[in-house]
Amino acid sequence: MIRNVLQLNAEKQLKHFLSMEGLKRHHLIEILDTADFFMDYERNRVKKVPLLKDQTIVNLFFEPSTRTRMTFEQAAKSLGANVMNLNISTSSAKKGETLLDTLHNIEAMGADMFVVRHQESGAAHFIAQHTAPGIPVLNAGDGRHSHPTQGMLDMMTIRHFKKEFGPLKVAIVGDIMHSRVARSQIHALTTLEVTEVRVVGPQTLLPSEVEKLGVHVHHDLKSGLDDVDVVIMLRLQNERMDGALIPSEREYFKLYGLTEETLKYAKDDAIVMHPGPINRGVEMDSPVVDGDRSVILQQVTFGIAVRMAVMCLVMGVRPLEMNHE
């Protein structure tokens, strides 16, 4: 499909990072290996690796976000880049400026890379189609479509704890329909060829033909968790629910909430993940969030390394191929 070509250059290397779709296993592995490289630096308490020194990275956020923006900012600064933040939801969109005008204005200020979050699916593709050649676009979440850096940090977390993707069974539980994170995870997991990906939730929270994405559908949490190695819980996105998709949070928790009891259906060494922010007592019981199977905080740490890796790769900087003393 055309959009997959958009994020690769003539050498089939990443020039934007918009979506997991269309990327090959080796692309994902390269991101993970590069991120591991930055984690080694992190462990050695090296705060800055100035590979993108004097580059200007612009965080273009059309949708409110603190956390994701902070991790991108942290990643950029760790690479020695300058960071500009623009929150459009409170700025020019309200003044009637078009998305393209905003974009071209910021380009004129000398941006070298855009990090974009937007409430509409396809917005990052749209921006990538209209930026000047050589200016990479990183998708930090577009509508329900894609959130590829989140997907990659989840893969990094899984690889860290489980080493190999091949034998794994992974369950993604909750609001798949409205989740760009779930879509990115599903594509990444199938590209990395895990044994099985399951989605678990009521039909009202599942896309109509979700099985065509290569997943198994479970409506029952116990069967969905049975024998899995990884449990990914999704946030119940209240703000996206414009219809009555579930009767109540109480019933949702009863049927799909992860407790120490229901977690027993998964493998004994299964890890529990969540992209945050968590609604305690809605998706997950507090003892599970804080329990020893939870790797939720590690996900956040890996997030910075993954974003550093992607920022380098789209700029054609390959630290793994460099000579390090």
């Binding site: 779709e21 699916s121 396809g122 577009d142 509508g143 329900r144 479509h145 894609s146 760009r180 879509r183 896309p207 109509s208 033909e209 979700v210 065509k212 994405l213 414009d242």
Partner: peptide, 18 residues
């Protein structure tokens, strides 16, 4: 209401309201 694409495989992938 609110839809912009056929509710099916492609809209599922693209995250478009079907």
């Amino acid at each position: 209401a609110g839809g912009c694409a056929h509710e099916g495989e492609v809209a599922d992938r693209l995250g478009l309201n079907g």
